[in-house]
Amino acid sequence: MTCHNRREKTKGCLVNLFKQKFPEKLEMAVFVCDDGSIDGTKEMIGECFPRVQVVLGNGNLYWGGGMRMAWKEAQSKGEFDFFLWLNDDTNLYEEAILSLWNDYQQVYPLAIITGACQSAITLEWTYGGREEYGPIFPKLYPQKIRYINGNLVLIPVAVNDKLQGILPIYAHYIGDYDYGLRAQEAGFTCYTSSKYLASSEPGIIQYYGDPKYSLIKRLKLVYGVKGLAIKEYFHYKSYPYGKWVGIKTLIAIHLKALSASLYKLLGL
């Protein structure tokens, strides 16, 4: 896990994690990167969850960097059979880990399972597995998917031995999508869970092509780490689809940001 100034969310997530029942003979070690929190997150973890091993970031790691730091710490402390990604705004349901494990037994051994999440307010799908056309909803059995969200993901160590974690080029977004695509290229399969395993509310997305924003704000959304992060996005689009697709994507994005009407006029 990685966290930054979300003490109560982090606490709630860890409470639910430590309430979980685990399959026989499996034990859990928890590693959290506290990326420069100033709200007492580190102290809260030390007081309430003494078993959790905390590494400290500089406040500029974001999701990708924080996950890499926590993962590196875990790998330095022992040999594990599996790694479990968990976001601190993801609240596990009762027996979520057991359900995830049972799904894994159906697709064993060379597979990644991402847990389907829903809104606690609307009960609608929010995160999990996706295809090109949209989200894949749970259907009481594990379903193959193309894209994984990183909120709750079970990864066998054999998979990560080939992939070696989230790529350093990804600071905040897209690293989970890329990880799943690289896994499939390496011969592994990605699945989504058979049912909803947690609640996680969708983030607010500001669209870089929205004409109600000023040009400066639209460009900030294109280049910002928590926006589109255009350098990372170019790498992501170029990796599976080729550099020409990446270049066309760059042109289209900048045209949208500069002028949505021009983009439509050119028919891109």
Rank of each mutant, 00 (worst) to 15 (best):
N102H: 11
G59N: 14
V55N: 09
A111S: 15
D89M: 06
G66M: 04
I45E: 01
T90K: 01
T122F: 15
R51D: 08
G57C: 10
N87E: 15
G40I: 01
E47T: 09
K77T: 01
L26W: 02
L26R: 05
V54L: 09
I113S: 05
G65P: 11
G57N: 13
F80C: 06
E73A: 14
V30C: 01
Q106T: 13
N60T: 13
K42S: 09
E27N: 05
T126Y: 03
A116S: 13
E27K: 03
D103F: 01
Q75N: 14
F49Q: 08
N60H: 14
A70E: 01
L100T: 02
C33R: 05
A74L: 11
D81I: 05
K77S: 06
V107L: 13
I136V: 15
S99L: 05
I45W: 00
Y133L: 12
E27A: 10
P109V: 14
L98F: 00
I97N: 00
A74M: 12
V52Y: 10
T122Q: 11
P50A: 07
N91M: 14
L100V: 01
R51V: 03
L84M: 04
G129D: 08
C48V: 06
T41E: 05
G40V: 01
S119L: 15
I97D: 00
F82K: 04
G64R: 06
K72W: 08
L86P: 01
L61G: 04
D88P: 05
L61P: 01
W71E: 12
I97M: 04
L110F: 14
Q118V: 02
Q75V: 05
D103N: 11
D88L: 08
T114D: 07
G115Q: 03
Y133T: 13
V107Q: 11
I112D: 09
I113Y: 06
F80L: 07
Q106F: 06
F82Y: 14
E131R: 15
S37L: 07
S37D: 08
Q118N: 11
S76F: 07
F49E: 08
D89I: 09
S99P: 00
G115N: 06
N60I: 04
G36I: 07
G66E: 02
C117D: 07
K77R: 06
S119K: 13
L110V: 10
A70H: 00
T126C: 10
E131N: 14
W71H: 12
P135R: 15
M67F: 15
G46L: 06
E43N: 06
S99R: 06
D34A: 04
Y133R: 07
S37M: 04
E124K: 13
Y133S: 13
F137S: 12
R68H: 06
Y133F: 13
Y104M: 09
K72M: 11
P109I: 14
T90N: 05
Q106W: 05
P135V: 13
G128A: 06
K139S: 12
